[in-house]
Design a binder for these strands. Structure first.
Ligand SMILES: [Zn+2]
Ligand SMILES: [Zn+2]
Length: 740
DNA sequence: AGCACGCCGACT
DNA sequence: GTCGGCGTGCTC
């Protein structure tokens, strides 16, 4: 009976005519880009290998899916037939699938979603890979003679070996000529896949110092999987270690993957690699044009690109001959995806290197506590680079107590004096304030009313230039009010300082010196950042004002003074990672001062000069500070001494949030009682309301990762299957980096 | 996630 | 009388 049904439904959903012998014989399981953690089964006339994309009907629309299983047995019901097979062969190898499956399971994400975030947009939309492959051509007969000058030029060009179209065009060959030669069969298409892209050094590398040499030797002489933590202060030459390790990797005929923070993928960064290696380098970055991005992605997948440089999502690029992974500035938060499924590209880099049996290098001047702990317990091998390049000494650091000093727009006399003398010496100064906009509040002089964001619990920030009140936590923007809505007074004060105001005041105080502001408002892309920094790189005296954007690994050769205006907010620890983040930020900012041969000076303005964190951070190297923080984490059983997960929920009504989190809390009650799991919460998120939605969270800790994982798997299942109220959003973040 | 179906207010 | 609001429910 059941069998009969199946056959009937098969022929019903099949477009094939009666009498034809080959019915849709193949049942395949397909992963689809929908937030459903199961595969969908379809019928296909011809065999399709797992790993190929297919176009399928899915509840009256069409989706692009990826075959994950052939010859699978469906559970029940009617099966639809696929519309089209897109890939003749799988676009990635088994190792890549291992990574995708691991990611889906570890971060509790549907496989289809993981694949989606791995593919560039156009490939997600079902465009064939061939669109993004260059056509190559070769001679059919080396002794071939052509008729005209045009044709002969083409044949001569090809005599040195196969070429792609762009090269022929450079050799002044026209499309028409090539077409004619193809028709005459004097030239044929050449299958360049499988050919190895040549690669050579274009510059003679600088001699590494003793520490660098030791690091390079250790990494290049290792075999199989190994992980390295390069802990090197700013300017200690981590890059040279990367470059030498890449050189070794390329010499073995393999490909190297380099991950960099979002803001660091600039032409200058790329220059460092292209200046050393003459080979095909793929760049994977969201800022790139879609077509170009696909070309690079495909060239990585084809094994043609020898170096792949990209941001977070580049960790998912197929790289068949992967021989090395570098994660630069490994502590950077942009490696952790904040929306969708919460993966960490840095953590996945370790997993991927393990699969590929190759080395992985994590580099940072301020390594994350996770990585330091891993090094401590021997999982990573630690390489320290302590020498400051050019032999420059560490900067002098001075605390300025703002309670004792008068200030002009947030700047103490000490700061202004230091800036003056810095500029007088012909050097550059950097003013760091981690708050963009003009002022963080707009307040009525008479009644004390403050302009608050209607959609959350924070004040509006004044943006002077655009005459707007902007909420930095929601999407709310309003025009600046000039009258208090409470008492109708027109005396409204802009209280406090942001980058825009500091910039304005510095221009007034130092009219003859250019002041450059670097924050999200002036600098939206890495490209723009590079443009804005052009002037700084010229070396003429100037003042840089900016947010943490300035702290991220940029080289300012002539900055000798760093003034830090608002470190205090980072000292009021809201979550257990705050001291780590503050320490990293301050260390990175201080590292901007005094590179090369110029001595540096750092001035930190604070109202908490005796704060223990500040004291220990400024009196000793970051690594000592970090080990103190680690000891504290250990004492409290916090990560990395336990595994953590965070359940977030939000809804317009608090009650619904509470209900969801309580459900989760009760579900785990048993495990908590048995000591398998620890819960903290439910509690409001640090920003308890955002965009008009109430936000709550529930923390989970476990001493064993696999215990946490199975608990979260079960919780995920529970919440997925619970009929939760509409509009309730929830997510489980494994290894959360940020409680917001 | 989409995109349906499905029942109640203000429009031709 | 219809157009459309978004509340539940399903997708091989
Ligand atoms: Zn007022
Ligand atoms: Zn807001």
């Amino acid at each position: 009976m059941w069998l009969q049904m199946r056959i009937l439904t098969n022929s019903a959903t099949n477009t094939q005519s009666i009498g034809e012998t080959t019915l849709s014989a193949h049942t395949i399981a397909v992963a689809l880009p929908v937030p459903l953690k199961r595969n969908f089964h379809y019928l296909s006339d011809s065999a399709v290998s797992p790993g190929c994309r297919v176009r399928v009907p899915f509840s009256n629309r069409e989706l692009i899916g990826t075959v994950v299983e052939d010859n699978s047995t469906p559970h029940s019901g009617e099966l639809k037939a696929i519309i089209e097979i897109i890939d003749e062969a799988p676009f990635a190898n088994q190792r890549w699938w291992q990574l995708i499956n691991f990611t889906a399971s570890y971060y509790l994400a549907p496989i289809g979603e993981v694949i989606s975030s791995a593919l560039p947009k156009n490939l997600r939309d079902g465009r064939p890979l061939s669109n993004y492959r260059a056509d190559w051509f070769q001679l059919t007969d080396v002794n071939a003679v052509a008729k005209g000058v045009q044709q002969q030029r083409c044949l001569d060009a090809l005599r040195s070996g196969p070429m792609e179209w762009s090269q022929l065009r450079e050799a002044k060959v026209t499309r028409a000529t090539l077409k004619r030669l193809l028709e005459l069969e004097l030239v044929a298409e050449y299958d360049h896949l499988g050919a190895e892209t040549p690669c050579r050094l274009t510059q003679s590398p600088p001699e590494p110092n003793a520490e660098q040499l030791a690091a390079i030797t250790a990494i290049t002489q290792s075999t199989g999987f190994s992980s390295w933590l390069i802990d090197g202060i700013t300017g200690s030459g981590k890059t040279e270690v990367y470059l030498r390790s890449i050189e070794h990797c390329l010499a073995q005929g393999q490909q190297a993957l380099v991950l960099v923070p979002e803001i660091a993928l600039t032409p200058q960064t790329l220059e460092r690699f292209s200046a050393r290696f003459a080979t095909r380098i793929a760049v994977l970055h969201s800022g790139l044009a879609r077509g170009a991005r696909c070309e690079d992605w495909v060239s990585a997948a084809d094994g043609l690109a020898r170096i792949i440089i990209g941001t977070r999502s580049a960790i998912f690029a197929p790289i068949p001959k992967l021989g090395l992974i570098v994660v630069d500035e490994e502590h950077d938060l942009s490696y952790k995806q904040q929306d969708g499924f919460h993966y960490s590209a840095r953590d996945l880099a370790i997993v991927r290197a393990k699969h590929a049996q190759c080395p992985v290098i994590l580099g940072s001047a301020t390594p994350s506590l996770e990585s330091l702990a891993n090094a401590e317990r021997g999982a990573y091998q630690r390489l320290e680079l302590s020498a400051r390049a050019g032999g420059a000494s560490s900067p002098s650091v001075e605390l300025v107590d703002i309670r004792q000093a008068s200030r002009d727009t947030g700047l103490t006399m000490a700061a202004l004096d230091s800036i003056s003398s810095c500029l007088a010496r012909g050097e550059q100064a950097l003013v760091f304030i981690n708050r963009r906009g003009y002022s963080p509040a707009l307040m009525c002089q008479h009644c004390g009313w403050i302009a608050d964001c209607p959609a959350c619990t924070r004040h509006f920030t004044v943006h002077q230039r655009h005459q707007q009140l902007v909420c930095h936590h929601c999407d709310v923007v309003e025009p600046v009010t000039h009258r208090c809505p409470q008492c109708f007074s027109q005396q409204l004060d802009r209280v406090g300082e942001g980058t825009e105001r500091i910039e304005e005041r510095l221009i007034q105080l130092f009219p003859d010196t250019p002041t450059i502001r670097i924050d999200r408002d002036t600098t939206r892309s890495a490209q723009q950042l590079a443009e804005n920094l052009e002037l700084v790189n010229n070396g003429q005296p100037c003042i840089l004002v900016g947010t943490q954007m300035l702290a991220k690994g940029h080289h300012f050769e002539r900055v000798t003074l760093v003034v830090v205006l608002d470190i205090d907010s980072g000292l009021y620890a809201a979550d257990f990672r705050a001291p780590e983040r503050t320490g990293q930020l301050l260390t990175q900012v201080m590292g901007r001062a005094g590179r090369a041969e110029l001595a540096g000076q750092v001035l930190v303005q604070t109202s908490l000069p005796d704060h223990p964190l500040l004291q220990s951070l400024l009196s000793q190297p970051y690594r000592i500070y970090a080990s103190m923080l680690l000891a504290e984490r250990q004492r409290f059983g916090q990560p990395p001494f336990s595994a953590a997960a965070l359940l977030r929920a939000d809804h317009p009504h608090q009650h619904q949030v509470d209900q969801c989190l309580s459900l989760a809390r009760n579900f785990c009650a048993n495990a908590v009682q048995h000591g398998v799991l620890q819960c903290q919460g439910p509690m409001p998120a640090p920003l308890a309301m955002r965009n008009g939605r109430q936000r709550g969270q529930l923390w989970f800790f476990a001493s064993h990762r696999n215990k946490l994982h199975s608990a979260m798997q079960a919780l995920d299942e529970l919440l997925t299957n619970s009929k939760l109220v509409g509009g309730l959003r929830w997510s489980i973040d494994i290894d959360p980096q940020d409680s917001n």
